[in-house]
C-alpha cells in the first residue's frame, strides 16, 4: 500500500514537471510575445531593449531561464509579474484561492444536495412521470454552455428584470466573508446556482443509474425478503453503496474546479478567483502568473486523481498491481 502511494506521488510529480516545461515552451514559441519588448515600452531603442532583456534575465539560455523561474517560484517564492512589475505572484495566487474555494464549495453543496435528492427521487419513482422528468432536466443541464448560462443569468438579473424582481442582486464582483458575510453570500448566490446547475444533473443521473443497479443486487433482495419497505431499502442499503461512485466523481470534479476549471463562471461573474487570475494572465501573456496558476491548478487535478486512486486501491486491492 505504501509503495503504491509512493509510486503514485512520484508519477504525480513527474506530471507536474512535464506540465511546467510545456507551459514554458509554449510561451516562448509564440511570436510577438517577447516580454522584454513589452516591458521596455513601445518606442524603446534597440539598446534599451537589450538592457531590459538582460535585467530580466531574458537573454540567458532557455533552460537557465526555466530553472531561474522555478527557483523564484518554489524556493525563493518571490517570482514577480512581467506585466505589473514588482507584483509578487505567489501571494496573488494565495489571495485568489479562497475566492475560488468559496465559489466551488458553495456550488458543490448545492449540486450534491440537488443531485442526490434528484437521483433518489428518480430511482424511487421509476416508471412514473417524475423519473424521466428529472433525467430530462439532468440532460438539459449538462448540455448548457457554462458561460452562456452565466451571461443569461446576468442579463436577467442585471438588466431585464433588475428594476423589478432582481433589484437586490449586486453588480458582480466579490465581497470577502470577513468583511460582510451577508454581502458575501449575496454576491456568490448566482455564481453558485449557475455552477451547481451544470453538475447537479450529471450527479442525479449517475446516482440514479447506480441505485437502479444496486436495487437488483443480492443484499437488496435479502433485505426485501426480510419485508423491509422499498423506501427504507433504497435509503438505508442501496444508497450507501451507490454513494461511493458519487464520492470519487466528486473528488475529481472538485479538484478540477478548485484548480481553475471554474474559469468561465469566474470570468462571467467577475469573481477574482484563480480562474480569473489565469484568464487575465493569459490575456496579458504574463508568463510568471500563467506558470503559477497552471501549476497550482494541475496540482489539484493531480492530487484529486491520486487521492481517488489511492482510495480505490485501499478499497479494492486488485488495482494496486495495475
Amino acid at each position: 500500500m505504501l509503495s503504491f502511494t509512493l509510486r503514485r506521488a512520484l508519477s504525480a510529480l513527474l506530471v507536474l514537471f512535464a506540465i511546467s516545461i510545456a507551459v514554458f515552451l509554449i510561451f516562448f514559441a509564440t511570436p510577438g510575445v517577447d516580454p522584454a519588448a513589452r516591458i521596455a515600452g513601445r518606442s524603446a531603442s534597440p539598446a534599451t531593449l537589450a538592457h531590459v532583456r538582460a535585467a530580466f534575465g531574458l537573454n540567458r539560455p532557455i533552460f537557465i531561464r526555466y530553472l531561474l523561474m522555478m527557483d523564484h517560484l518554489f524556493i525563493k517564492r518571490d517570482l514577480t509579474s512581467y506585466v505589473n512589475v514588482g507584483l509578487k505572484v505567489v501571494p496573488q495566487v494565495l489571495k485568489a484561492a479562497p475566492i475560488t474555494l468559496a465559489l466551488v464549495s458553495g456550488a458543490a453543496a448545492i449540486w450534491l444536495t440537488m443531485g442526490i435528492f434528484g437521483g433518489i427521487v428518480a430511482a424511487a419513482n421509476r416508471g412514473k412521470f417524475i423519473d424521466p422528468l428529472v433525467m430530462f432536466i439532468g440532460i438539459a443541464a449538462v448540455s448548457v454552455p457554462a458561460y452562456w448560462l452565466g451571461e443569461v443569468v446576468n442579463l436577467i438579473t442585471q438588466s431585464r428584470l433588475h428594476s423589478s424582481v432582481f433589484s437586490w442582486v449586486p453588480s458582480g464582483g466579490y465581497v470577502s466573508l470577513t468583511q460582510n458575510p451577508f454581502e458575501w453570500a449575496l454576491h456568490l448566490l448566482f455564481p453558485w446556482l449557475t455552477l451547481a446547475a451544470l453538475y447537479a444533473g450529471i450527479y442525479a443521473r449517475v446516482l440514479r443509474a447506480e441505485l437502479v443497479n444496486a436495487m437488483n443486487e443480492d443484499y437488496v433482495r435479502t433485505a426485501r425478503a426480510k419485508g423491509l419497505s422499498e423506501r427504507r431499502i433504497l435509503i438505508r442499503h442501496a444508497l450507501r453503496c451507490s454513494l461511493i461512485s458519487i464520492v470519487s466523481l466528486f473528488g475529481l470534479d472538485f479538484g478540477a474546479l478548485i484548480g481553475g476549471a471554474a474559469l468561465l463562471t469566474e470570468v462571467v461573474f467577475g469573481l477574482p478567483g484563480v480562474g480569473m487570475l489565469t484568464y487575465t494572465a493569459l490575456q496579458n501573456l504574463d508568463l510568471p502568473v500563467i506558470m503559477a496558476c497552471v501549476l497550482y491548478g494541475s496540482f489539484f487535478v493531480v492530487l484529486a486523481n491520486a487521492v481517488v486512486d489511492v482510495l480505490y486501491a485501499f478499497l479494492d486491492p486488485r488495482v494496486r498491481v495495475a
Binding site: I19, A22, I26, L263, T278, L282, V294, S298, V301, V302
Partner: peptide, 16 residues
Amino acid sequence: LDITWAFPVYLLAISL
C-alpha cells in the same frame, strides 16, 4: 495521458 488530463482543460486549450 496523465499530463494531458492534469493540465487544466481550458488552460491547455487556450494556451495552444
